[in-house]
Amino acid sequence: MTELRSLVTEVLDDAGVLLPPHREQRVREDAFFAGRRLLPKALGDPDLLREAAVSLGLAEPALVRILGLGWQQTDGLALLAGTSASMRPQVCHAGALFNLGIVLFDLIVDRFADRAKLLNRNVTPLFLVEHLRGTKPAPQGSGDAAIDALTALITEFLARCRQLGSNRREHSALADQLHAMYIAECESSATRRDCSRPTIAVWRSLRRKSAVPITMLARLALLASPNGERERRAAAIASGRLAGQAIWIVDDLADIREDWAAGGWSRPLWWLARTGGSTPGSPQKVLRHVVDNGIADAEARRLALRLLQLRRIADDYGSAFVQSFQATVQAWLEELPG
Score class of each variant (00 low, 15 high):
17 V>S: 08
225 S>T: 15
199 T>C: 09
3 E>H: 12
269 L>G: 09
303 L>H: 03
183 I>Y: 14
274 R>N: 09
109 V>D: 07
273 A>P: 06
62 A>D: 13
111 R>T: 11
150 L>S: 00
202 V>M: 05
6 S>F: 08
258 E>V: 04
334 E>I: 11
167 N>V: 08
331 A>W: 14
36 R>W: 14
131 H>W: 00
219 R>W: 13
302 R>E: 07
265 W>I: 07
63 L>I: 03
211 A>D: 06
156 E>P: 01
252 D>S: 06
319 S>K: 10
181 M>C: 01
32 F>Y: 11
226 P>C: 07
99 N>Y: 04
157 F>L: 00
307 L>T: 01
102 I>M: 12
96 A>G: 04
128 L>D: 01
42 A>F: 00
188 S>C: 13
42 A>N: 00
155 T>N: 07
145 A>S: 10
161 C>W: 03
6 S>W: 08
61 P>T: 06
37 R>F: 07
53 A>V: 03
301 R>A: 05
186 C>Q: 15
46 P>N: 01
49 L>R: 02
58 L>E: 07
32 F>M: 12
223 L>F: 07
156 E>S: 03
185 E>K: 08
262 A>H: 02
300 A>S: 02
281 G>K: 02
2 T>P: 04
257 R>C: 06
164 L>I: 05
90 Q>A: 15
236 A>T: 12
94 A>Q: 04
159 A>V: 04
7 L>A: 02
38 L>H: 02
108 I>N: 01
208 R>C: 11
168 R>C: 14
73 Q>G: 14
306 R>M: 13
182 Y>T: 01
177 Q>G: 08
21 P>K: 05
136 K>F: 06
184 A>I: 03
62 A>I: 12
1 M>T: 09
242 L>R: 05
243 A>Q: 10
188 S>G: 13
174 L>R: 07
246 A>K: 05
135 T>F: 10
303 L>D: 01
241 R>N: 13
314 A>H: 06
29 E>V: 14
242 L>G: 08
85 A>W: 13
90 Q>M: 15
182 Y>N: 02
227 N>S: 15
314 A>Q: 09
109 V>E: 08
285 K>E: 14
8 V>R: 03
325 F>C: 06
217 L>W: 07
278 S>G: 10
128 L>P: 09
244 G>K: 05
163 Q>I: 10
276 G>V: 04
133 R>M: 09
113 A>N: 10
269 L>W: 06
291 V>T: 06
248 W>Q: 12
265 W>Q: 09
163 Q>G: 09
228 G>V: 02
134 G>Q: 01
312 R>A: 15
256 I>T: 10
243 A>D: 04
173 A>H: 15
236 A>F: 09
310 L>T: 07
132 L>T: 00
191 T>Q: 05
19 L>Q: 03
98 F>I: 00
95 G>K: 01
266 S>H: 10
71 W>S: 03
